[in-house]
Amino acid sequence: MNGLTFWFDVHSPWVYLASFRIGDVARKHKLSLRWRPLHLPRLLDDIGGVKPLEATPARVAWFRQDIADWAELQNVPLRIHPNYPLRNSRALRACLLAEDEGRAEAFVRRLLRGYWAEGADITDLDLLAGWGEEAGLDGGAVKAAAVSDEFKLRLEQNTAEAIVRGVFGVPTVDTGAKLYFGNDRLDLLDIHISQGKIPLHETG
Rank of each mutant, 00 (worst) to 15 (best):
T159G: 01
E202F: 03
E134C: 04
Y84M: 04
R113T: 06
L97M: 08
I191V: 14
P85L: 07
L96A: 07
V170N: 11
L137W: 08
G140D: 12
T175P: 07
A106N: 05
L179D: 13
A141H: 12
L127S: 03
E133N: 04
W116P: 02
V170S: 14
A104D: 06
H192L: 13
K197C: 03
S148G: 12
P171W: 05
E202G: 10
L200I: 01
Y84V: 00
V142H: 11
D126S: 12
Q74L: 03
A106M: 04
F181K: 03
D138T: 12
Q195E: 15
P85N: 12
A162Y: 12
R103M: 09
L200A: 10
G119H: 04
G182H: 13
F181Q: 08
K143T: 02
A162D: 10
N88P: 01
G140I: 00
L186K: 14
H81P: 12
H81S: 09
A141R: 15
Q74I: 00
A129D: 01
A141S: 12
A106P: 03
F151E: 14
L200P: 09
A135T: 11
R103V: 02
E161D: 11
K178G: 02
G114C: 01
A117C: 02
V164I: 14
H192T: 00
D138Y: 06
I193A: 15
Y115Q: 04
L127K: 05
D100G: 09
D100T: 04
V147R: 10
